[in-house]
Amino acid sequence: MNKDNRIQATWRWPALLGLNLLAAALLASWLLPATRALWDAADLWLFQSLNGSLNHYPLWDWFWALTSLRPSDALIGGLMLSLLLHTRWAFRTGELRPALFTFIALLVVLLVVRVVFSKLVTLLGWQHESPSMQVPGSFHLSGAFPELERLFELKDRSSRSFPGDHASVLLLWGLFMALFSRGWKLAVSLALVVLFMLPRLVAGAHWLVDVAVGGLFIALVSFAWGYCTPLAGHIARGLEWACQPLWAPLQRLPLINRLQVVSPQHTPQSGAPQSS
């Protein structure tokens, strides 16, 4: 991976410090009694507003039931990957592979951060159940759509809902894309993050804090230590080296060889602007 490309993970001390402080402040706002009451009130209000919209219109219920399934997560992942690898969205042709490998590297960092943070959450007793398991009168999509529940398992409940894993990945993607998207493309990228987090909130699988505190904390720390240090760069270069033998065979496959990320890549010019 060329060190001159603008996607390079490297030491960015102000961002590293700022992101970690923001993550710490966010977590502290939930833990401190003075502000915990505000989070609790927001949790209950949002859940009752979103979950309360169910059980009135069948098509509305079907929509949220379908978007709460694992196959929908796969479709969302495909869309996120498509935008990441779209040459008219955030990255130029020669930047596609560095962008792809850097984001995969950030996901590796996120996995480590998530495991460590989850153990800390359990140790300190911060874990809790989903709102659908705690709030009386909650509407359960799994009960309303038993066939979908039997085939795919609807994501509308969890005995360990903090932090939001699904949200942390979406938020990490949003942070990464926000660095390189501008104007309406930035707005669309961020709007998609919010939209894709909604099914878990509407179904009652997560409280607001699971997403806005737990998920965002993991995303911020992962991005800080992955992208604002050389860590993700080292992982990305290792992944790129390991995948070198795959490109030539992929370039001979019909349809696959039309993907820009598979085509021979041109090294970005040394004058490309650096991301800060």
Rank of each mutant, 00 (worst) to 15 (best):
H86N: 13
I235M: 01
A15T: 11
K119H: 12
N2E: 14
V262F: 02
R12G: 07
F196Q: 05
F91R: 07
R70K: 09
W241H: 14
S181L: 13
A15Y: 12
G18K: 09
A224L: 08
V188W: 06
R258C: 07
S181W: 04
F63R: 06
L110I: 00
R200H: 08
A15D: 13
Y57G: 00
K119I: 08
P33Y: 04
L124T: 04
A34T: 12
G183N: 08
V112H: 05
S142D: 13
F63G: 11
W39I: 10
Y227V: 00
V213P: 03
I235Q: 01
L186E: 12
C243A: 14
A74S: 13
G271L: 14
T229N: 05
L259H: 06
S158M: 10
L110W: 07
L198D: 14
P245I: 03
N20P: 10
M133W: 03
H86I: 00
I76P: 03
A191T: 11
A203N: 04
L83R: 05
V121S: 01
L21S: 14
S82P: 01
W11D: 08
F103R: 12
G78R: 01
P230K: 09
S159P: 00
Q134P: 01
E95L: 04
V113M: 05
L75K: 02
W184Y: 13
L17I: 15
H140E: 02
P71K: 03
L50F: 09
A24T: 15
S72A: 11
L44M: 15
S142F: 07
L44I: 13
L253C: 05
R6F: 07
A105P: 04
H128I: 03
R237S: 05
G164D: 04
G174F: 08
A37T: 15
A34M: 11
L96Q: 15
H140R: 10
L66N: 02
P136T: 02
I256W: 01
V109P: 07
I104E: 08
V109R: 06
N257K: 14
G143W: 00
R12N: 15
S270N: 08
H234N: 11
W60Y: 02
Q269T: 09
F223Q: 03
A42P: 14
V211P: 12
S29W: 06
L107H: 06
L246K: 06
